[in-house]
């Protein structure tokens, strides 16, 4: 793979050598102009704010820019030490890792399985309708889904539990028991996003040459053999790429999903890092502390990303780069 890429650039270099600067700009100039806007976006909204990471090492102050503020205690690491001494941060770290890990194990294969199922449907119109229906929850916000979850799953007034009660069964505490809440959280995540995430796999599936299926049929492979030997290998690089990106997010945390689904009885499992940052930083004005937490989160995320990529390369896969 690497060899191929290197030869490509060599070829490019050669052709560039033959072109003058003017010729080159005439041919590709518009592309650069089109690139300008996203580059400006990234500089203004992604890179410039990074200067404020400095406030993780400075005294808590939002009035002055961080470079004018005095360094924090302990050689600037006061807030990191404070965070790790803070019980709530440790709980939040534990909950973030637990929820994201479960999401990865259970949530990650879901769209792959769904995509395989959809791929096997032969009746085109039915396939298209099914696809549309499974996409739809993606467009609902977590606020709406949490409202739906309450109406359906509340232990006494929820529809599901009313049905159970009428059938003479005990209500299930989907939302107010910490263990059950975790499963409700994971399952709702799958319901919301699995359909949408099939898109990328379905696109990869169209790239598999039909000749491979025909050849497999000739060799006498049945439906499951074909899935195993043709479809899944065809999806492998997509799966690996997405898995690496997901691993990079293992310590990242969404805010609206746990915040909206949470309630006072399950805060022991639902308080994740983003909620910690919201409560202590934005509401509690501890900006330096929460910047430190955010920085820690990002650094760990980068390590996971690099590690996963390395492992992928080792196993002969292309990885993300």
């Amino acid at each position: 793979m690497k060899v191929q890429r290197a030869s490509l650039t060599r070829r490019e270099k050669k052709s560039l050598g033959r072109m003058s600067w003017k010729q080159y700009m005439r041919r590709y100039g518009t592309l650069y102009i089109m690139l300008l806007l996203p580059v400006i976006f990234f500089i203004v909204f992604r890179y410039a704010p990074m200067a404020y990471i400095l406030s993780a090492f400075k005294k808590n102050n939002i009035i002055k820019p961080p470079w004018e503020v005095a360094w924090a205690g302990n050689n600037g690491f006061e807030w990191f030490i404070k965070a790790f001494k803070n019980r709530d941060f440790i709980y939040a770290l534990r909950n973030t890792v637990t929820l994201n890990f479960l999401d990865l194990i259970i949530g990650f294969p879901a769209p792959i399985i769904l995509a395989l199922l959809l791929n096997e449907l032969t009746f085109k119109r039915f396939k298209r309708i099914t696809q549309t229906i499974v996409y739809l929850p993606h467009f609902l916000s977590w606020i709406i889904i949490s409202g739906l979850a309450l109406r359906l799953l509340a232990p006494n007034d929820g529809l599901v539990n009313i049905v159970l009660k009428n059938a003479g069964m005990e209500p299930i505490h989907f939302l107010d028991d910490s263990n059950n809440w975790v499963w409700t959280y994971i399952m709702l995540g799958i319901w919301k996003e699995a359909g949408w995430n099939t898109i990328i796999y379905l696109a990869a599936l169209t790239g598999i040459s039909p000749e491979l299926y025909e050849a497999a049929s000739v060799d006498g492979a049945g439906r499951f053999r074909k899935i195993w030997h043709v479809t899944l290998p065809g999806l492998r690089s997509t799966i690996i790429t997405l898995l690496i990106m997901n691993l990079g997010r293992i310590l990242g945390s969404e805010f609206d999903r746990p915040y909206a689904l949470s309630n006072k009885l399950v805060t022991d499992v639902s308080n994740v890092i983003s909620i910690f940052v919201y409560q202590n930083g934005i509401k509690g004005s501890q900006f330096s502390l929460t910047t430190a937490v955010g920085l820690f989160q990002s650094v760990i995320g980068v390590f996971f990303l690099l590690g996963a990529n390395k492992i992928a390369n080792k196993f002969g896969e292309r990885g993300v780069w």
Partner: peptide, 13 residues
């Protein structure tokens, strides 16, 4: 300083 919100959340929970 800065601790009111997180303590209130704890209390309610």
């Amino acid at each position: 300083e800065g601790i009111g919100t997180s303590l209130s959340e704890k209390r309610d929970a």
